[in-house]
């Protein structure tokens, strides 16, 4: 996903393998969708860090999910600018429409609702990111439409199966 930039020779990384812990976990989650126990154990062993340390890092950073997530991830920005533009209404909408609170995944495994503390797109808020696509100036009405379109995509896919 990101441009592979080779490490400059010899100028870095005092800490050896241990300093790669956060980045390695990020990359594994990007590949696998979440961090399973096996993955965390695997990373700890390969980098030579205590399992406690790897488990600690996996639990500390908000980006990590320790449970499998839904096929479609919908993230609501909760930054100040989005907040004063009524971003909480969007959480109400998720609650009402899908009965999901932030962090929860729908029973059919299709949708996970998450929050994030500022994406930096404050000029066009409130922002919802759905499957890595940014949606700007969101309102409860637009969100209903977005949820419907996600449902439609799923229905079409199951029809094709």
């Amino acid at each position: 996903m990101y441009m592979e930039v080779p490490e400059a020779d010899g100028l870095f990384r005092d800490g050896g393998g241990a300093s790669r812990l956060l980045e390695t976990l990020l990359e594994r989650q990007e590949k696998e969708g979440y961090l399973s126990r096996e993955t965390i154990r695997d990373v700890a062993v390969s980098l030579g860090v205590p399992l406690t340390e790897a488990w600690g890092v996996a639990n500390f950073y908000k980006v990590f999910s320790l449970v499998p997530r839904g096929k479609h991830r919908m993230t609501v920005c909760m930054g100040t600018a989005c907040h004063v533009r009524s971003a909480p209404l969007l959480l109400e909408e998720f609650s009402g429409q899908l009965n999901l609170e932030p962090g929860e995944t729908s029973a059919d495994g299709l949708v996970t609702v998450e929050t994030v503390n500022c994406l930096g797109a404050c000029g066009v808020g409130p922002v919802v990111v759905a499957d890595e696509v940014f949606h700007h100036h969101m309102t409860p009405k637009k969100l209903r439409r977005l949820i419907r379109s996600v449902r439609r995509v799923e229905e079409e896919e199951t029809e094709h199966d």
């Binding site: 205590p50 340390e53 488990w55 600690g56 639990n59």
Partner: peptide
């Protein structure tokens, strides 16, 4: 032993 650690924020 590193059996215990702080977990979470």
């Amino acid at each position: 032993a590193n059996a215990l650690g702080f977990i979470g924020r």
